[in-house]
Computed example of a mutant assay.
Amino acid sequence: MSVLMEFAMFPTDRGESVSAYVSEVIRMIRDSGVRYQLTPMGTIIETDTLDAALEIVRKAHDILEKESDRIYSTVTFDIRKNAENRLEGKIRSVEEKIGEVNR
């Protein structure tokens, strides 16, 4: 199973720039060993189970809750059985098709 999860989570009561807080969450994701891709608007991870993805969300919340009284978060899932390596594969598939169109 492949669970792609895109999420954004940050404190809303810590000023205009929250990169210091977000970097703590990204460090936790990196250290967890799951594949991830940081984007300007959020982070995408890929896990083998829904529980593993939800554990990342819980840990991210735990990190931010220590420093903040208000946390904003969005979470989106794409769960597919009998699949893996979709974090890279989905992008590669689109890029290949773009190349076919431009020929």
Score class of each variant (00 low, 15 high):
D51F: 11
L64M: 11
T76L: 13
R27M: 09
I45E: 06
L64Y: 14
L54Y: 11
D48C: 04
T39H: 13
E65S: 08
I91T: 06
G89A: 09
A53K: 01
L50C: 04
E55Q: 15
I29R: 06
M28F: 14
F77V: 02
D78P: 01
N85P: 02
L50Y: 14
A52Q: 15
Y36C: 08
E88L: 05
I45C: 04
V25K: 03
I44V: 15
A53H: 06
A60S: 15
E46T: 05
R80E: 05
R58Q: 14
T43Y: 07
V75R: 02
S73Q: 12
I63T: 00
K90V: 05
A83F: 11
S93F: 10
E88N: 09
R30Y: 14
R35V: 05
I98R: 12
K90M: 09
L50G: 02
L54C: 12
I63W: 11
N82R: 14
P40H: 08
R35A: 12
Y72F: 15
V25E: 04
S73N: 13
K97I: 02
D78G: 05
R58W: 14
K59A: 08
M41L: 08
I26R: 06
R92Y: 02
V75G: 01
T74E: 14
S73E: 08
I63H: 02
T49G: 08
L64I: 13
S32V: 05
E65I: 03
E67R: 14
D62M: 03
I91N: 02
E65M: 04
I71P: 01
I56Q: 03
E67K: 15
S32D: 04
V34M: 03
M28W: 11
I45D: 05
I56T: 01
A52F: 09
T49K: 01
I79L: 09
V94K: 11
D48P: 00
I63C: 00
I63A: 01
T43A: 08
D31W: 04
R80N: 05
T47P: 03
G89R: 05
Q37H: 07
T47W: 14
T47F: 14
E67Y: 14
F77L: 15
L50W: 10
S68M: 00
M41R: 01
I26N: 11
M28V: 09
D48H: 12
I45K: 00
E55L: 15
L87A: 04
I98C: 01
E96H: 06
A53L: 10
D62S: 03
V25S: 03
L64R: 08
N85F: 12
N82W: 12
R35N: 12
D78K: 12
I56R: 00
N82Y: 14
V25C: 06
F77D: 05
I91G: 00
R58M: 10
T39Q: 11
D51S: 12
T43C: 08
H61N: 04
E55R: 15
E96N: 12
I71R: 01
L38W: 06
R70Y: 07
I45A: 03
V57N: 03
